[in-house]
Amino acid sequence: MQTRDIHELEDFCKKIRRHIVEMITEAKSGHPGGSLSAVETLAVLYREVMRHDAKNPQWAERDRFILGKGHACPVLYAVMAECGYTPVDQLKTLRKMGSIYQGHPDRRFIPALEASTGSLGQGLSVAIGMGLAARMDGNPSRTFVMLGDGEIQEGQIWEAAMFAAFHKLDNIVAIVDYNKIQLDGFVKDIMDLEPLGDKWRSFGWHVVDFDGHDLQAVRNAFAEAAATKGKPTVLLANTIKGKGVSFMENNPKFHGMAPTKEECDKALKELA
């Protein structure tokens, strides 16, 4: 793991947030809330944790990332672009016909994506398949998958959770972007997940519960996952939906609604 100046990482996160707001404003549709909540985890993952090479995206021993909550793709696109995978200057083509930045992650347009997602609940299973293949081959590759909190209401997540613990897959890491809001409202009102840590623990996972916007806490969580052997680890990243933009924070309206031009300007001022 590289050690970076935490202020540089903070600046990186701000830049990613500006991309997210601008991309979605330009697209006039998309999911800002769940993109903004996942910025710190993805920033630390791509800048410090994963072994990857944008110039060699098919490197067999690379670590892999799957965005289970595919609707949050603006954050992934922005991070991958800033890491050199795809053009930064095309980010504002998000959701436009012919753009590589499709409405949900699509491998046909960006081959460096590890999976096409958008139907919730499938990413953890795909990560497991990759983890099994790596273990068979003695490949040091690790696979990370980010799940939405609403997403883990899907039954397949718990089929996969059972499988990963039973097969002692310690080369996969699940990250729950626990921002407490889903499309129709607050998770606790739609289908409460609590006690969430206990649920994962009872399924045989190592659980790390932390502040998903505290960069040092995020670093520590990934380090704890790397050190955990013999069982899979889930990182419960407690986050704020819409983080970084005052009027989007904790506001269910911005799960799946684009800001207006005026709201965008206001947001960019806050993120300057």
Partner: peptide, 8 residues
């Protein structure tokens, strides 16, 4: 979906 991951 595990099959998809193995194939990938």
């Amino acid at each position: 979906a595990i099959g998809a991951g193995l194939a990938s």
